[in-house]
Design a binder for these strands. Sequence first.
DNA 1: TTTAGGG
DNA 2: CCCTAAA
Length: 631
Amino acid sequence: MEVDDSHGALVNKSEGNDFENKGSSDPVVYQLVRVEGDGTLVPATEDDVLQFEHFLHGEKVDLPSIEDVGHVEEFFSNDCILPEKSDLEDGSSKSKSIEIYTQKLGADIEENRIQSLDDSLSSPSRCRVAHGQPPDKVITEQGDNNITQQDNASTETTKSTVLNDSCSAEKEKADACSRPVDDTSTEPSVSGVNSSVPDFSILRGEVCLDDLTIRELQEAFRATFGRQTTVKDKIWLKRRITMGLTNSYDVPSSGCVVKDYKIVGKDAKQEISNIGEISKAGRLQTTTLVRDQVIYPGNEGDSPSSSYYQSEDQQGSSKRFKRVPIHNDEPQGSLLAEQCTNKRARKPTKRYIEELSDIEIHDSTGKLSSPAKRTAHEEVLLKPRISFHEAESLGTIYPTRKDTLGGFSVHVPYVSRMRRGRPRKDFISFVDKEPSVKPNINRVHTAIRMMLAEEGEEGNHIRKAYEVPLTVNSERVHIEAVARKEVQNLQTKVYGAPAKPKAKQGLTRKHHRAWTLCEVVKLVDGVAQYGVGKWSEIRKLSFASYSYRTSVDLKDKWRNLIRATQTQLPPQKDGGCPRKINPSIIPIPPSILLRVKELHELQSQGGGFTAPVKFPGQNSKVVQGKGSGFL
DNA sequence: TTTAGGG
DNA sequence: CCCTAAA
């Protein structure tokens, strides 16, 4: 990133400063730049960008709002009586104000910066402000722009144009309303200077702001901040211009001389540019935006990046600036309502994900639900946070997936957002508890894949599949355990059942297997043969080939069959079953149901008989579709 | 472990 | 299907 000392690297140079003709394109791009030690502005590095993250954590929510960057400036200039030699070392009132400002600004920086940062980071050429050019041209409306434009200004222009279209009116209004009441000037509005191309040359050479007319000051303002203003208050304009050029709020209200975009102090004696101070201090690394620079004094803190400049947002987020209800000369009024309703996009940091989860819960439920009473759905919403915390505390690397949060692509722990049914066990934690199994995980994975593939062909044999010995040694038990968990884990993915947070770790739920007619028949035969309640026996003898059916399963199924006979068999007449018959559910043939009923009645009445009973109806034709019971 | 029963 | 108590 070299500093462009020539002012030739301009885009839209030809379009230059034709203010009257330029109506739409705004060559001023929003770029993050960093104040170098020598006072030049260079594009922000990725590190600078990352340092923004600090703001996300120190954010205070209840701070008053700032309507516009102008207010910020006014906030400082009007309310912060600062010692002449204050600078950044004075930690007292100024630092306090700065801190407040930092917090407020940080709240909105997140939203604006991301896109800007993306742009600045991704764009091949970066905007920078050239300094120290010879004052070859002085205040000529045809002068060269001294702010380099992005090479991709054409693409950037789209955004900028939209911004202008959507926001210029409001800005204009705001600026108009911001005129000081004591301003008796009746000068025509500077609407004539409506060009989207600010005349940066207005500030070239050596100019005493006091000598400028209001219009020229407005132009200088525009050159400084990249937007026009209709404010006709000379002092206001001068101060803002000065502040903008010096990146300082500590400026004299008059007597400033602008020399090549730098403010030379009154009578050109002292240079009050904070840039110089900053560079001398050598400890302030400021990220800024060329356009609409917000004076952002360096924080005395240890963090070299504790201060940033804020640009007006492309979406007019300046309206959402939290602002202090202090004296200001720019309107805020009706915008307050809007900022209340507007929800800021927020960079999805870890903490953000946490908070987002909470917010989602709060929003979805309206009220804070106690942790103990969260519904499954709410738990799901909480999951990302938990995953992160677990990942941190356990040092475990969790699989992540790309997700979109606040419009930005981020990686989040790979958990399903929705789940049905009960949670699955935490396979990873299980593995962590069984380190001896880890070396076999890969094998298990392979095996599991094969199993799942097999399941795809033969849906009912997955359990059998992973009961096949995977190894010949004693690890088999572990392998099976892991395999079972893994299968369930994968199944949950396949079937869309996500994990449950913490409480039920180590628990699993086996995949639901619909009972086939064959199984039911075997069950009924088994009951008839060995008696009701002999589930273990039935399982061993009749379900030898259905190893995934446990005796409990048999018992449960039998119970369900009993219920079916009681609830669905009697009303055979079915005057009009309002229930839709799901074609995917195979009804249990009434003949089987009848057998179940008889067996049940026999068992319940005459006590347990274990003798095999032959039922004449066993061979009777199976009539389907009567809908008395389902598998 | 198995069974029974509630969830 | 899960969970648990009671055999």
